[in-house]
Design a binder for these strands. Structure first.
Length: 895
RNA sequence: GGGCGGUUAGCUCAGCUGGUUAGAGCGCCUGCCUUACAAGCAGGAGGUCGCAGGUUCGAGUCCUGCACUGCCCA
């Protein structure tokens, strides 16, 4: 039989097969719909994969991100959208260059030794060999992306678009070149942006120096610094203009020790009279604040370090020393001169390079910048006006906070791997020609000797353009018309500024006249961080990194995906625990076995078919009306949860339905029908198949592998579509909702559970069936009578007797507002335990009644609370009275 | 220093615009190999919702303060 499943659920056996199938069959490739074609009538859903670094390996953060994206994309696709999820890879300037340099180092080679051309060749080779790791992992995890459209940020067309953007921004006066203090990484030997600097508290020292007055070396001004070596580049000492202590000294000169240079005492508000001596040394070439002071006072800028943070020729005798060697020597020398006034412990924040953790040196250098304010203004507006929505909403605040305090963006990097800046320097007149292609001559003097700028662009510049460059911009393509703006961006908050904000700025700028709006995406869903089970951040040094592929191989991709989805509630980090994943593997196993049960019955029942249509009379059975009602209600809830990006709610809703209702109740209820008369059995199989198939579709975006496997098995190799992923997503059908059936089932479930509970309490042997007595209103008696078989089977009951007198006082009996039930069983009950149970119940009920009485006795409550609430409490009050009465009587009877 | 979150069962987390008995998974206890599933089934124990005030007929939910804790930015 082709629909037979192996006895044990082995995820690895089925997952690899389907992962390959989805890729080779190109199931998720999207053709750009032609105008006027039927396809063009479908709504469009576009989603851009945040491109992982080409050097990257998949980590749990990626897996969470991709799981969420895949769930949404599969769901939208099944709902009838043209769903395009576009994958790509980022060239990752610094990271990749470092990687290849490290590789070269093991061969005793260096980037400089190789030269630019040969080095880039090497990087491309490296990319060819090692660059596809993440894509391979994504394919294994079944990400439903369109692999035919995969891009790399250094692809020729994308590179052309990057150059085009740079040139246009330059033409518009939004890119300039200037000398500024930048964060300089002496190891990477490049400038890095503010965002690439991570600050850390560091237990350092605060050193106090005495600078002698030029005209009176016996008198001093004391200054404090945490970086003594920068004094070599001091060009002033600043004091606050309001500081009385220094008023008469402003304008005088100091003699800078060691360098033997005269520097002025200047007045500037930056100097804080409360801090240290109130006087502060000014080093315009090595500190951003000092740089600003220097500009205000027209001070010289003396750069005393080279690109590896060694003292350069401006540092006189210290030339050639590393910055920290220089620090020691400066301190020794000053001490010898008696000018070292003190050393204190001082905690300071130091900046480290995000990539290599080297301490960053603020350093004056010439870089390219983007004038950000005009772009930021529009980007702020786009979010304010609701053109872009953040989920969770409060990330908009964080976004505004940053955007309103934004600084110009340093976009040049002193690297070789990346998009080289399209600017050519004239050897003759030093003019810089910015152009799309290499100019034959300088645009100013006509000189033929022009050389291209050595720098490349910040990686985030090119990735910030992706939402439109991936669709062929600057050409006016149909893709751009159809797919821009993207519908959604799903990413982590860690790249909110790096990437999200930049895409908004650049998208709004370059797509200003797009007919569907300029913003690059309409919604941003920010997800949490994945931590380990102890809420620790995963890091290599801690050794607590969970490899998604490893955990996937252990539990199955479906289980890992479901874990991540079910824990992805907005605003909280995910503490990933394997015990939870283990639980969801059990869920997958449950699905598997339920499927086996279905197939087993299909084979056993003659003439049964899973795909026939059900006879209407089947719906006369309560359990069928009930389960269809539940299914549709659940489908409605799941769809709504996904609209709200509540992956956790959606996952938990399906889980509870499938396990808690479909398997635990429905399958158990229909077992007799399945082995009943042929007609009845055939109908039962048909309904079972129908519900199962619907449940699989409902589950498919969350657990694509197991649902695909079972779904194909159901159709015995002749499925209505190539994949369940192309089938339709279940929607709520109002006509299937049946409140009465749901209420009635709740009564029966409650009855069955009460009987089971009594049996457990009286320690009835599991195999022994017992008669029960039930006292209930006519309506409930009728309900139980009609479903007598269900109750008897599921509660191990042997005969139900309906009695007219109350059973409440029978030892061990259970009373509810709907019925009283007692077990007919010759066994002494444990009086003490029974008393305890009754007392406990009573206490709870009395507490609740007191509460209800208090509320109903309160005129304000009656006047102000909505009628349904009052009614509900009133009804409950009645029930409580009865239940308490019965409880008390039972207790009294116990003696 | 500025900003944003979190504190609910032993653990990890839900709890939507305030409304009748605060839920789930894992773990724990008891009993079951009931022919789909022991990766299972059935039953059960376990919570003064961080603390103190306030608003309200009514607060886990809203407000204020405090404590602890995490993150982002400088």
């Amino acid at each position: 039989m082709s629909h037979e499943l192996p006895k044990t659920y082995d995820p690895s056996a089925i997952e690899v097969r389907w992962a390959e199938y989805w890729v080779t069959e190109k199931l998720f490739s999207v053709q750009t719909p032609e105008p006027g074609s039927p396809e063009s009538a479908k709504p469009i859903f576009t989603l851009l994969l945040p491109p992982p670094n080409v050097t990257g390996r998949l980590h749990m953060g990626h897996m969470l991100n991709q799981t969420e994206m895949d769930i949404i994309t599969r769901w939208q696709r099944m709902r009838g959208f043209t769903a395009l999820w576009l994958p790509g890879t980022d060239h990752a300037g610094i990271a990749t260059q470092m990687m290849v340099e490290r590789q070269l180092a093991t061969e005793g080679k260096s980037r400089q030794g190789l030269g630019r051309e040969a080095f880039l060749q090497r990087v491309w080779e490296w990319k060819k060999h090692y660059g596809g790791a993440i894509q391979a992992q994504m394919k294994r995890l079944g990400a439903s992306v369109d692999w035919d459209r995969e891009y790399f940020t250094m692809d020729e067309n994308l590179s052309r678009a990057v150059i085009e953007c740079f040139v246009r921004l330059h033409e518009q006066g939004l890119i300039y070149r200037g000398k500024y203090i930048v964060n300089w990484c002496p190891r990477c030997m490049t400038a890095i942006s503010d965002l690439e600097v991570v600050h850390e508290d560091f237990a350092g020292k605060l050193y106090e120096f005495r600078y002698p007055l030029a005209d009176d070396p016996k008198q001093f001004v004391t200054i404090a610094t945490t970086r003594p070596e920068t004094m070599l580049g001091d060009t002033a000492v600043a004091v606050n203009p309001k500081d009385e202590r220094y008023k008469k000294r402003v304008g005088k000169k100091l003699r800078l020790p060691l360098m033997d240079r005269e520097i002025p005492i200047i007045a500037d508000d930056f100097a804080d009279p409360q801090f240290g001596s109130g006087a502060v040394k000014v080093t315009p070439a090595h500190d951003p604040n000092d740089f600003a002071i220097g500009l205000r006072h027209n001070l010289p800028q003396i750069n005393v370090m080279d690109d590896q943070a060694r003292i350069n020729e401006n540092g006189g005798p210290y030339k050639g020393l590393d910055r920290y060697e220089a620090r020691e020597k400066v301190l020794r020398d000053l001490e010898e001169l008696g000018l070292l006034a003190g050393i204190k412990d001082h905690t300071l924040a130091i900046g480290k390079c995000d990539r290599c953790k080297t301490i960053v040196e603020p350093r004056l250098s010439t870089q390219w910048f983007i004038k950000i304010q005009p772009l930021a203004d529009r980007a702020i507006e786009a979010v304010e006006k609701g053109e872009i929505k953040f989920t969770p909403e409060n990330y908009a605040k964080t976004y505004f906070e940053w955007m309103r305090n934004i600084h110009d963006w340093c976009i040049s990097r002193q690297l070789w791997w990346g998009h080289r800046i399209p600017a050519w320097h004239c050897q003759g007149c030093s003019h810089i020609t910015v152009a799309r292609t290499a100019p034959a001559a300088c645009e100013k003097c006509g000189g033929a000797k022009v050389t291209q700028d050595n720098d490349v662009l910040d990686t985030w510049f090119s990735s910030g353009l992706l939402p439109f460059t991936v669709f062929g911009w600057p050409e006016k393509t149909r893709d751009l018309d159809v797919f821009y703006p993207t519908m959604l961006l799903i990413t982590g908050f860690d790249i909110l500024f790096f990437w999200v904000a930049r895409m908004i700025m650049l998208g709004c700028h370059f797509m200003a006249d797009h007919k569907q709006g300029s913003v690059p995406f309409k919604n941003v869903y920010i997800h949490a961080l994945v931590r380990d089970a102890d809420r620790q951040k995963m890091s290599k040094t801690k050794g607590n990194v969970i490899d998604p592929i490893e955990v996937t191989e252990k539990y199955g991709t479906d289980a890992v995906r479901f874990t991540l989805a079910s824990m992805a509630s907005p605003g909280t980090d995910i503490a990933f625990s394997e015990s939870r994943t283990d639980g969801y593997r059990a869920f997958a196993n449950k699905i598997w076995n339920a499927a086996r049960f279905m197939f087993m019955n299909l084979d056993r029942v003659e003439g049964a078919s899973l795909t026939a249509s059900a006879k209407p009379e089947q719906h006369s059975k309560l359990e069928n009306r009930w389960i269809y009602s539940r299914f549709h209600r659940v489908a409605g809830q799941v769809n709504q949860s996904l609209v709200d990006y509540r992956f956790d709610e959606a996952a938990n809703t399906i889980y509870k339905f499938f396990w808690g209702e479909f398997c635990d109740w429905y399958l158990e209820i229909i077992k007799p029908a399945l082995s009943g008369a042929p007609e009845e059995a055939r109908d039962a199989v048909t309904l079972l198949g129908d519900l199962f198939e619907g449940s699989l579709r409902l589950l498919s975006p969350f657990m694509p592998f197991i649902t695909e496997e079972v779904w194909h098995a159901m159709y015995e190799g002749k499925p209505p579509a190539k994949s369940i992923a192309l089938a339709q997503y279940p929607e709520l059908d109002q006509r299937r909702l049946n409140d009465q059936a749901e209420e009635q089932m709740l009564v029966l479930q409650d009855l069955i559970e009460k009987i089971r509970n009594m049996r457990a309490e009286m320690k009835v042997e599991p195999k022994v069936k017992t008669p029960v007595k039930i006292h209930a209103a006519a309506e409930v008696t009728k309900l139980v009578t009609e479903n007598r078989g269900m109750v008897e089977r599921l509660a191990s009951v042997d005969g139900i007797e309906f009695v007219s007198q109350s059973l409440a006082q029978r030892p061990g009996a259970r009373s509810t507002p709907k019925f009283e039930v007692a077990l007919v069983y010759e066994q002494k009950i444990d009086v003490a335990a029974e008393r305890e149970r009754l007392t406990k119940d009573l206490t709870k009920l009395e507490g609740e009644l007191a509460n209800a009485d208090r509320q109903l006795g309160n005129q304000q409550f009656l006047a102000k609370a909505p009628a349904p609430v009052v009614e509900g409490i009133r009804r409950r009050q009645g029930e409580l009275h009865t239940l308490i009465e019965k409880g008390k009587a039972a207790l009294a009877k116990l003696g």
